[in-house]
């Protein structure tokens, strides 16, 4: 039995004529300790998929099983890092993290909460900014707070929804390394949603492309057989990396072509010429 399993999951939005099926026949299984990346175009239903897994949404058809039990609601076992950080702007860094800690460990006293908050804020190198509000932080720092908040709850699985999408390339690289470091320490199961193929290859064990919606479904998986820890500069010369990267990009481009040709309807224009009003 897989750790996380999606069986023929479909999700529709709307009713009647406005009804659109965003996801169709999603089948996915993730083993414990695995790092899986799902790569897809923007608007292909990635966030919907994440919300189905973390329990914010319920599937219209099919089942989401977490450790063999259907996912009915959100759970502290699955930590989520949102695309837009979603920090509460009226709380400072420490308070944002503390709120999660208090919920995940309701029995711990003030001292224990503070110790845990400090530990995780230090882990993402934000201890000097612990009393700052999200507004005073840069995008990368905010995302680190979100990482600290998700991890401080000690989840068994981390779900990341395009966590680095809004960041510049340098910050992105740094945070990728930080997330990998944290992940490799106690090998939590991780699911990364991204639109960056390189990011997926650098971080994940497996990459699964998501075909664009409506009726989005998962494509064939690509295994990444590159030994960890991976080195970004060496990766460029790795033949395995090049091969996988080309295969994934070719696949995604192929979908793009398909999509274009699918709408290749020929419209015949009426044979008209503008009327001249000049005398």
């Amino acid at each position: 039995m897989a750790y996380l399993e999606l069986k023929n999951v479909a999700k529709t939005y709307g009713e009647g004529t406005t009804k659109t099926e965003v996801l169709t026949d999603i089948n996915l299984s993730i083993e414990e300790g695995e790092f899986v990346a799902i790569v897809g175009f923007t608007g292909s239903g990635k966030t919907t998929l994440v919300n189905l897994i973390n329990g914010l949404l319920k599937p219209t058809r099919g089942e989401v099983l977490f450790k063999g039990v259907p996912v009915m609601d959100t759970s502290h076992e699955r930590g989520v890092i949102f695309q837009n950080y979603s920090l509460l702007p009226w709380l400072n860094v420490g308070q944002n993290v503390a709120m999660a800690v208090r919920e995940a460990f309701p029995k711990s006293n003030k001292k224990e909460v503070k110790a845990r908050v400090d530990e995780y804020v230090k882990m993402v190198n934000l201890y000097p900014a612990i009393n700052k509000r999200p507004k005073e932080l840069s995008g990368g720092m905010r995302q680190r707070v979100a990482v600290a908040r998700a991890l401080a709850m000690n989840p068994e699985m981390i779900i990341m929804d395009e966590p680095l999408g809004a960041l510049d390339a340098l910050t992105r690289g740094n945070l990728q390394d930080e997330i990998l470091k944290i992940w490799s320490k106690d090998k939590r199961t991780a699911l990364l949603i991204t639109n960056d193929v390189d990011e997926g290859i650098y971080m994940a064990d497996r990459i699964i492309p998501l075909r664009p919606g409506p009726n989005a479904t998962l494509g064939p998986e690509f295994k990444i057989d590159i030994e960890r820890p991976r080195d970004k500069t060496e990766l460029n010369d790795n033949p395995e990396y090049k091969k996988t990267r080309n295969a994934i990009i070719a696949y995604l481009m192929g979908i793009g072509e398909e999509r274009k040709s699918a709408s290749k309807k020929v419209y015949t224009l009426p044979d008209l010429s503008p009327k001249s009003y000049v005398a």
Binding site: N54, L56, T74, L88, W90, A100, E103
Partner: peptide
């Protein structure tokens, strides 16, 4: 987004009102 945070952190209804919705 804030409501989603409240859900993911599994805040109780009263906490959700006082810690997320009211602020």
């Amino acid at each position: 987004d804030y409501i989603n945070v409240a859900k993911v952190l599994k805040l109780g209804p009263l906490q959700k009102v006082f810690k997320v919705i009211l602020p």
